[in-house]
């Protein structure tokens, strides 16, 4: 059976690539600290020696559209082209090409369907910055095959937070039962409090630092009970109008396991959102 080498959850910030690669007067004052934190975070994946990456993210109205919107979708393709013209335009993100691990995609789809998750699939998926940002931060070589898993945190009606957690638990169990000798890292990215296209956007820090403090505590301690008790589809509007991306963190809490403390926790209070980085090593706990 496959081994879960690491479980990693983080925010995905599309400004990182440009901030980290800019020089001279173009380099923002926060870039060096950010790069140092990302470099340390990257090491938490590297040391787990993964062979395959399951990447949980959310399409930002690129390939998924309102005429045909999946709630949860698994990519099953030998390759994934990545990043879009509007991400190149706004964030300076490069075009990328990533290999796919089709056997694990097929296994995740079959087992997921049989476990009661009516997963959509795509045989030609162009992935966006929700998947490429963590590749850039955690595995910039992009040398490992991936299985992308997309969630709808964007276009109401959304699945309930509880469903994200259940899917996370199912992904963990399915990957652990995959008949393979490979070491799999499961990586997912979402948001803490975030406002985009609303009056609280791009402030001096995230729109709701108290939510962020609480959320980091839930994730770091695996406190699914508190998170599920205090988070609802309605409540997530309060910390910021893009905060439903927190449900991808809740999915990853499901992957990591109830009350399982993260082995690595870090955060960075950027000017308009809090960055947060978590790694668990399930193998070490065995």
């Amino acid at each position: 059976m496959a081994t879960i080498a690491a479980v990693i959850a983080s925010t995905h910030h599309p400004f990182y690539y440009r901030a980290s690669t800019s020089t001279g007067a173009d380099r923002p004052p926060f870039a060096d600290e950010w790069v140092a934190k990302i470099t340390a975070f990257r090491e938490t994946l590297t040391r787990s020696r993964p062979d395959v990456l399951v990447m949980v993210g959310s399409d930002h109205f690129h390939q998924m559209w309102l005429d045909n919107m999946p709630q949860f979708l698994v990519g099953k393709a030998p390759f994934y082209d990545a990043n879009y013209y509007n991400e190149e335009r706004e964030f300076g993100l490069p075009r990328m090409l990533v290999r796919g691990e089709e056997d694990l995609s097929a296994y995740l789809l079959r087992q997921g369907l049989d476990a009661g998750f009516d997963l959509a699939f795509s045989n030609e998926l162009r992935i966006d910055h929700s998947v490429t940002c963590p590749l850039i931060t955690l595995r910039p070589e992009c040398d490992l095959p991936i299985v992308p898993v997309y969630t709808n945190i964007f276009a109401p009606p959304l699945p309930q937070p509880k469903r994200f957690v259940e899917l996370g638990k199912a992904i963990r169990a399915i990957v652990e039962s995959w008949p393979s000798d490979e070491r799999v890292a499961i990586i997912g990215t979402g948001h803490l409090s975030l406002e985009l296209g609303g009056p609280r956007q791009f402030g001096p820090h995230g729109p709701d630092p108290e939510f962020d403090r609480q959320a980091v505590g839930w994730i770091a301690s695996g406190d699914l009970e508190s998170a599920l008790a205090q988070v609802s589809l309605e409540s997530l509007w309060l910390p910021g109008n893009a905060t439903h991306g927190f449900m991808d963190f809740m999915l990853m809490m499901g992957v990591a396991g109830e009350n399982v403390k993260a082995d690595y926790v870090d955060s960075l209070d950027l000017f308009h959102t809090m960055e947060a980085y978590f790694t668990w090593y399930p193998e070490a706990a065995r």
Binding site: N86, L196, G198, F202
Partner: peptide, 27 residues
């Protein structure tokens, strides 16, 4: 809100000198 913001950044960010100047005006 995400669609509006993304498109309007493409339309008008170029008219502002300060980084994120348009985004803050938008807010």
């Amino acid at each position: 809100h995400f669609l509006t913001l993304t498109l309007f950044i493409a339309l008008f960010e170029r008219d502002y000198d300060e980084p994120l100047g348009f985004q803050r005006e938008y807010a």
